[in-house]
Amino acid sequence: MGFDNLHGAIPKVEIHNTVKAYKEKAGRYRLQGVRCEDCGTLWFPRRFVCPKCQSQHLAPYLCMETGKVVTSWVDTMGFPAIGYEDIDTRVVAMITLDDGITVIAEIADEHLEVPKDTPVEMIIRAQKRDDTGNLTYGYKFKVCQ
C-alpha cells in the first residue's frame, strides 16, 4: 500500500462526464434499473448484460423508493469531498430497498450516523455541478418521519 511511484498513486479526482450523466439520468432521477427477462434478477444501476446469466434481454425497472438502512457512516476524513464542500456533515449509507436492491447513497439533512433498520425514502436534491457548470440533480435519501 501507499505511494509506489511518482506516477502511479496520485489520488484520482473524479471526472464528471456530462454526456454519461445525461445518459444515466433515468437512474439518478427515478432509480430506474433493469430486470433480467430471463432470470428475473433486478439490477441497479442499469446493466446491458445480466451479470448473473449473461442474458441481454433486460427491461427497464423502477426500483422501490423506500428502504431500510443497513449501515451508515459520517464522512469525516478531515476535509470535505471534492464537490461537496457545502455539506458540513455528509452522512452516507448502505440502503436495502424494499424490493431487495442495495444502493449506497447520501442521507440528507442528518448529522449523525443513522441506526440500522431506520426506514428511509428517496428524495431528489441538487447533487453537484457537472464539468460544464450545470446543476446535476439526483437521488438522496431521507429518514421517514
Binding site: 428524495i123 436534491r125 441538487a126 446543476l135 440533480y137
Partner: peptide, 13 residues
C-alpha cells in the same frame, strides 16, 4: 434551504 435544496428539489418534493 440546505446546501442541496433549490426551487427544483423543493418542487419535486
Amino acid at each position: 434551504t440546505g446546501p442541496d435544496e433549490d426551487p427544483i428539489s423543493l418542487g419535486v418534493d
